[in-house]
């Protein structure tokens, strides 16, 4: 693995105004062609970590890097190298799938895409053909998630950050989703995913980071997990039976 670090968290620490320490010196990195999974219960600090990468929050301490750019110093430049999908994906209900995609593609700097290009991306994420020109109003969560994924794909950024992308998806939709992620990995993207789903985490990721109460307790590679029971490991970690 001699790939460069695309995403890097350096001792990220966040203390909220109310004094809550949501993140405590969290460090990890994601290389090109790697899927890194932040695994943790609700409230573990996953979204906080992601928000720091996107400059929605300023770290109390530490630095998030995207493609080597310090997000706290030049957030706008850093954001050119990352595609992001938030945990709430309502998108614009009055726009069609294609119009949603078109808007975000142009925001991401893709100005010359044609209708057919958008259709190709929408096909790629497995949205039914007849939904392409339908308003999102009537879309199911799974369909909206697909459009959301299309939005992250179309930007063609080296880093992709997905916050709880599979929560609320039915198994079939979730499987399709994972297939696309593998394709993206094959293209050499660095992918950071947060989830509270142990099985998905083991299934899709090259590296799993176990988070609890703002601390990154362990980072395990796929090879290390081959011989371990991740579920047991996870519970042990968050119950403090294994020293971090």
């Amino acid at each position: 693995m001699d790939q460069p670090n695309i995403l890097e968290a350096q001792k990220l620490t966040k203390v909220y105004e109310d004094g809550l320490c949501a993140l405590d010196h969290v460090s990890f990195s994601v290389k090109a062609g790697e899927i890194f999974c932040l695994l943790g219960d609700n409230g573990a600090g996953k979204t906080t970590t992601i928000n720091l990468f996107l400059g929605f929050l300023n770290p109390t301490e530490g630095i998030p890097f995207i493609n080597g750019i310090d997000v706290t110093k030049d957030p706008l430049a850093a954001k050119q190298h990352v595609a992001y999908l938030s945990d709430v994906v309502m998108l614009y209900p009055n726009f069609t799938a294609r119009q949603n995609l078109d808007f975000f593609a142009r925001l991401g700097g893709k100005n010359n895409l044609k209708r057919e290009d958008y259709y190709n991306v929408l096909r790629q994420v497995g949205l039914q053909e007849k939904a392409f020109e339908q308003r999102l109003k009537g879309f199911s969560k799974g369909m909206r998630q697909k459009v959301g994924l299309a939005i992250t794909i179309v930007k063609e950024a080296p880093a992709i950050i997905l916050d709880e992308p599979t929560s609320g998806l039915d198994p079939k939709a979730a499987n399709e989703f994972l297939a696309i992620l593998h394709k993206l990995r094959a293209q050499g993207r660095a992918i950071l995913i947060s989830t509270h789903d142990i099985f998905r985490a083991k299934e899709i990721s090259d590296t799993v980071g176990i988070m609890s109460e703002g601390k990154l307790l362990a980072v395990k590679t796929k090879a290390e997990l081959e011989h371990e029971n991740l579920e047991k490991l996870y519970l042990d970690y968050i119950q403090g039976k294994v020293a971090a």
Binding site: L54, K79, S86, V89, Y92
Partner: peptide, 15 residues
Amino acid sequence: KEAGTLKLVFSNRVS
């Protein structure tokens, strides 16, 4: 913000 589009918009180079 509630629709999540605000974060999506601001994950781009938007001031």
